[in-house]
């Protein structure tokens, strides 16, 4: 069938994209980033020690060999071992995925349901008081720096009121629950504004179309006009916005995990960058590139489900 051919063709794009991603991270790492030997050995390493380490890490080989190595990693997904912790990277990813998903999963669901419902509400009462109140809150959420929100939240809810854990993590359900509540609440506040504004615009774009007038002329209630006719037509931009978030769920929240001392993939990536841990950086970059391509294809396929006019060729 046509659609499978399309999916296959789209997946072939992974090849040039990965080659490009490899080139970019390789160039950045070798030409821009500091020599990892300094980070790994400290300030007082001798020339000999540095040379030995370079040899051990394979950094004394010609550039093209090293680049080929990177490419090989990208296509085999054999990421090897971390330079700093000497752990197998797949093991590290497995260990970090749980904590990351325990925050990003609920955050993703709550935030999108919250933002879409709120957007439907304000689109329904456009121009009225609710719309204006939500507008003010959204702009506040968008413009207050996220670091300020996090620090205030930790101080107020964690220290002053003492109702949530300020930071830390405990593995296993339900032990982790108290640790993830505060970050989820704060990050819903940080991101709902932009999302709500976006969904509101998308929904209002549809709310003034001719077919909406036709639906009203049938005697349908406003609520049904909104939820049946308008929402289904707004689904394309909404789906795109939602699905493109999924790969970032797996990557974890880069900074939030550090703020809340959560041992997830985001914190792992930040640490790897600080320590010039090239194999870990490589692994996370390649995984996110593949994730974005994969979910791009998923979005395209879902388009054909919501919009009968779409045909994948």
């Amino acid at each position: 069938m046509n659609m499978y051919a399309y999916i296959f063709r789209r997946l072939l794009y992974v090849i040039p994209v990965l080659l490009g991603v490899c080139l970019v991270i390789f160039v950045l790492f070798n030409l821009v980033a500091p020599d990892p030997a300094f980070t790994l050995l400290g300030k007082h390493a001798t020339q000999l020690q540095i040379a030995e380490l370079h040899h051990e890490l394979g950094m004394d080989r010609p550039y093209w060999v090293q680049y080929f190595d990177t490419v090989k990693t990208a296509f085999t997904f054999d990421f090897g071992y971390s330079w700093t912790s000497k752990q197998n990277i797949w093991e590290m990813i497995k260990a970090g995925a749980g904590p990351s998903l325990s925050i990003t999963g609920p955050l993703f669901v709550i935030e999108n349901i919250f933002a879409i419902s709120l957007a439907l509400l304000v689109a329904f009462y456009r121009g009225k008081l609710v719309d204006k109140i939500v507008l003010v809150l959204s702009i506040a959420g968008m413009s207050i720096p996220s670091l300020a929100v996090v620090l205030f939240g930790q101080w107020f809810f964690g220290y002053k009121l003492g109702i949530f854990e300020i930071s830390g993590y405990e593995r296993g359900f339900p032990q982790f629950v108290p640790y993830v509540i505060l970050p989820i609440i704060l990050y819903v506040f940080i991101s709902f504004g932009g999302e709500t504004r976006f969904y509101r615009t998308v929904i209002l774009d549809e709310a003034y179309q001719d077919y909406v007038r036709t639906a009203r002329s049938k005697g349908i209630s406003e609520l049904r006009v909104m939820f049946k006719h308008v929402l289904k037509n707004s689904m394309i931009p909404i789906l795109t916005q939602i699905i493109i978030q999924i790969p970032t769920l797996i990557l974890g929240l880069l900074f939030a995990e550090s703020f809340f001392s959560i041992p997830g993939l985001g914190a792992m990536t930040i640490n790897a960058i600080n320590n010039s841990d090239f194999p870990v950086i490589k692994a996370m970059t390649i995984l996110s590139a593949v994730g974005f391509i994969l979910f791009g294809v998923v979005t395209d396929v879902l388009y054909t489900v919501v919009d009968p006019r779409m045909k994948l060729k």
Partner: peptide
């Protein structure tokens, strides 16, 4: 009350047949 009349007792057709139907429903 008006919704019971609209589409039932008084119905309307519009100028733009190209856009007056909802594109995502049969």
């Amino acid at each position: 009350e008006m919704r019971k009349i609209r589409g039932n007792k008084i119905a309307m057709i519009f100028q733009e047949p190209m856009t007056s139907l909802n594109p995502v429903f049969t």
